[in-house]
């Protein structure tokens, strides 16, 4: 992808030291994650995984909100951790913007929304002319289908869905190349979710904005993604075109996950096996799914499987797909 690469993440790792829960052990909340985002047209890249698998930690590293323990992040060809502090505070927010799970966190509850958006246009997007700032803000509001009079209110006078639209409007004011959206619709009612997700699709198509969409909801992931990464206990278990992964999941964990979706068109068959504790799995030396995997082999318990590219173009971290397994 070279030239067109928007984001290139290599061997990104975050180690947390915890007392209590993990008995003073270190554990890798994110473990050697690599992927690239870019190409000829904008894409929606979705990261799905269960609660606690490391999605938010990964997102926060990409947003430069926390430092990785090791690994690198390249945005538009530039190493993020080699940027000067001035570039980090000025250039970075113009190319990468966040949308958080709780939309109310993005806004000061006491402050009217409109002046805050104007402030974003001036300070973050660097627009000097006031008229131009107003125009940019109004365009952003139109993109998320909010009328400008709504922005005259305070956040607590709006619904969760409206505030989430506002936080998307705020994020697109600087015309970023990439938006990292961490569970953006999980606090929003089902009847309003599709409206927000349609906005992502439309921003991708009309403004060429790339998205990293983080979610635990596979049905919405299917609805909007171009590519999907399934994350399990800190690492990617499987990465590929959304269509291919949902049609024919390769990793045994992805298979379990897709079988467990409470679909509205087909009922579950059979039963699932659930881990007793989370600690056990995080600390397994080999494949972290080995305790629950119906296909577990000797090698799985000893060595973590590498990400293997299959003939169909999907990458999967499972010894079943390796020539090395015996």
């Amino acid at each position: 992808m070279g030239e067109n690469s928007i984001l290139k993440v290599e061997n990104l790792t975050k180690v947390f030291k915890t007392g209590g829960i993990f008995f003073g052990k270190k554990f890798r909340a994110v473990d050697s994650v690599s992927f690239t985002l870019g190409g000829d047209s904008a894409k929606i890249f979705t990261i799905v995984g269960e609660s606690g698998c490391g999605k938010t930690t990964l997102a926060r590293m990409i947003l430069s909100l926390i430092e990785p323990t090791s690994g690198s992040i390249e945005i538009l060809g530039r190493q993020v951790f080699e940027l000067s502090s001035k570039e980090r505070s000025r250039w970075l927010p113009r190319v990468v913007q966040p949308v958080f799970q709780n939309p109310f966190e993005s806004f000061n509850p006491l402050r009217k929304v409109y002046p805050y958006l104007i402030h974003t246009a001036v300070k973050v997007a660097g627009v000097e002319d006031r008229g131009e700032a107003v125009e940019l803000v109004n365009q952003a509001l139109e993109s998320v289908r909010l009328s400008p009079d709504i922005a005259d209110r305070s956040p607590y006078e709006l619904s969760g869905g409206q505030v989430q639209r506002l936080s998307i409007a705020r994020a697109i004011i600087p015309r970023p190349k990439l938006i990292v959206a961490d569970e953006p619709v999980s606090m929003i009612d089902a009847s309003l979710r599709m409206g927000i997700l349609n906005i992502f699709k439309q921003l991708k198509e009309e403004l060429g904005i790339n998205f990293i969409y983080i979610t635990h909801d596979l049905a919405t992931a299917y609805y909007i993604s171009d590519r999907i990464a399934v994350m399990y206990k800190g690492s990617f278990a499987e990465v590929g075109e959304a269509e291919a992964i949902f049609r024919e999941p390769l990793h045994p964990y992805t298979q379990l996950l897709i079988d467990s979706i409470p679909r509205v068109d087909r009922k579950w068959a059979g039963k699932v096996k659930v881990a007793v504790t989370e600690v056990e799995e995080y600390l397994l030396p080999g494949c972290k799914f080995a305790d629950r995997c119906p296909y577990v082999m000797e090698i799985c318990k000893k060595r973590a499987p590498p990400l293997i590219r299959t003939s169909g173009g999907v990458e999967v971290a499972c010894w079943l797909y390796s020539a090395e397994k015996h």
Partner: peptide, 8 residues
């Protein structure tokens, strides 16, 4: 809970 635990 995520879907697998939910199903359990």
């Amino acid at each position: 809970l995520d879907v697998v635990y939910q199903r359990g």
